[in-house]
Amino acid sequence: MENKEKVQNSFKQIRHLAIGIFCVFMAMAVMLLYLLVDPTLSAFKFDSGKKATTNEYVSVPESDADFDKIENGVHVRTGFVEGDGLMLVVNNCTNCHSAKLVTQNRMSKERWLATIRWMQETQNLWDLGLNEEPIVNYLATYYTPTEEGRRKNLNAIEWYELED
């Protein structure tokens, strides 16, 4: 009988020990899991905690950069070629009409200037002041006529097999 009691007691001790060890492991596991989520223990730094959460909502200036992004030498938003005076042209020449009205045309410096005068006289374009020269220079540099003769070759043909 005495033996039986001893065995029961030692079982009890072993069980308590096992439970204790299990609890320690569980506590460590919870701490490790928490560290995975918050490795800097920021939730316990009460003074800096507020700063950290508000910082998350500070706006990033990324979209502003995208707005006037230039890719492969072309101002993405308007299609204008990159070059000196680009932003002056964007800001003065796309308020009333599309940039496409500019980029599909080819003119000499004299004719670009004449077009600006016509817009000032009849279309409510403002005085361009000191910006006029860089604007005209930009246009006459990047949108200048090329000699193309009396009839061009047929180009940009997409060839296809004609079925019956």
Partner: peptide, 11 residues
């Protein structure tokens, strides 16, 4: 679009 020198306007 075919005129040369090019003419101003929609091509």
């Amino acid at each position: 679009s075919e005129f040369n020198p090019p003419a101003k306007g929609n091509q």
